[in-house]
Amino acid sequence: MRQDARENRERILAEAEAVFGTQGAAGSTEEVARRAGVGIATVFRHFPTKEELIEAALLRHFDQLIQRAGALATDTDPATAFRTLVRTMIETGATKLTLASTLTGRQHVPGNAAAASDRLKAVVSDILRGAQDADAVRPSVTVEEVYLLIRGLAQASATMQTRPETLDRAIDVVLAGLSQTAG
């Protein structure tokens, strides 16, 4: 693929994540094209259907989280890596949930998205274990519990108007509750 085509594709995906991640199915491919600075034909050349575009945006979202988690796991102490990853997943979770719900009109989640979700969960599990080994997170905490808390705050921020500082404090409460030093 030519460099300009790769750049167009990346801009289209970034804008698709923004448009469909906030507007869901009501978002339009025309809006994605306009915001990406390309024609609608360019969007459809890369992604023949709106559903394929949304699925690709969701996969991009997972890939970016996996890359971020991998970088955190190698570049940061385990406690900071865990806290940063949980915070990032909650802050971007509303977008992921909106993208995924736009695709759930199907009978099942697309295989690529399910596989990407599984890869992310494996990385989150590794980072959780590292934080537990560093005595930063309670040893009894499971990745399923962490995911439930992440999803709860992400779902709340996706469905109700939440001020950023309120979400930030709520994340602090969750992280304090998971902490080894908590009650």
Results as ranks from 00 to 15, higher is better:
102 T>G: 06
13 L>N: 13
104 T>C: 14
9 R>N: 13
125 S>F: 02
54 I>R: 07
164 P>R: 09
156 A>F: 10
109 V>Q: 14
74 T>V: 15
139 P>Y: 10
116 A>Q: 08
32 V>M: 09
19 V>I: 12
179 S>W: 07
94 A>H: 11
22 T>C: 03
69 A>R: 11
11 R>N: 08
73 A>M: 14
15 E>Y: 04
158 A>D: 09
162 T>N: 10
149 L>E: 01
96 K>A: 12
62 F>S: 09
88 T>R: 08
23 Q>V: 12
38 V>N: 02
39 G>S: 10
21 G>E: 08
125 S>K: 06
32 V>S: 08
134 A>D: 02
10 E>V: 10
23 Q>E: 14
89 M>H: 04
54 I>Y: 03
173 V>N: 08
88 T>L: 13
158 A>G: 00
136 A>R: 10
37 G>M: 13
42 T>F: 07
32 V>T: 03
134 A>L: 00
41 A>W: 15
55 E>N: 12
182 A>Q: 13
10 E>M: 12
172 D>I: 05
69 A>H: 11
166 T>W: 01
27 G>E: 02
58 L>D: 06
126 D>I: 00
33 A>G: 02
138 R>T: 09
26 A>I: 11
172 D>C: 00
11 R>C: 03
89 M>W: 04
144 E>S: 03
103 L>H: 03
133 D>T: 07
183 G>W: 08
170 A>F: 02
113 A>K: 02
65 L>Q: 14
166 T>Y: 03
64 Q>W: 04
178 L>P: 04
170 A>M: 06
161 Q>M: 14
128 L>P: 01
49 T>D: 06
153 L>Q: 05
181 T>H: 12
11 R>A: 10
141 V>G: 09
173 V>C: 07
116 A>D: 10
13 L>T: 09
115 A>D: 15
155 Q>N: 05
29 T>G: 03
178 L>D: 01
38 V>M: 08
180 Q>A: 15
15 E>C: 07
26 A>C: 03
40 I>L: 15
55 E>G: 13
139 P>N: 13
84 T>F: 00
67 Q>C: 11
103 L>R: 08
75 D>C: 14
167 L>F: 05
178 L>F: 08
50 K>I: 13
129 R>G: 12
153 L>M: 07
74 T>I: 14
124 V>S: 03
19 V>Q: 06
150 I>M: 05
166 T>E: 06
180 Q>P: 07
97 L>V: 05
52 E>M: 14
110 P>R: 04
109 V>G: 10
153 L>Y: 10
94 A>Q: 13
42 T>I: 14
17 E>F: 04
134 A>P: 00
70 G>C: 13
121 K>F: 05
141 V>D: 08
86 V>C: 02
135 D>K: 08
167 L>N: 02
164 P>L: 02
30 E>M: 15
49 T>E: 07
60 R>V: 13
124 V>T: 05
82 F>P: 01
11 R>Q: 10
144 E>N: 04
67 Q>I: 09
169 R>M: 04
117 S>G: 11
82 F>G: 03
116 A>S: 09
70 G>L: 11
170 A>T: 03
72 L>H: 10
138 R>P: 09
181 T>C: 04
125 S>W: 00
178 L>I: 02
129 R>S: 13
153 L>I: 02
94 A>K: 09
157 S>P: 06
88 T>V: 11
156 A>N: 07
148 L>M: 10
39 G>H: 12
91 E>D: 13
81 A>R: 01
116 A>K: 03
120 L>A: 00
24 G>K: 14
44 F>K: 15
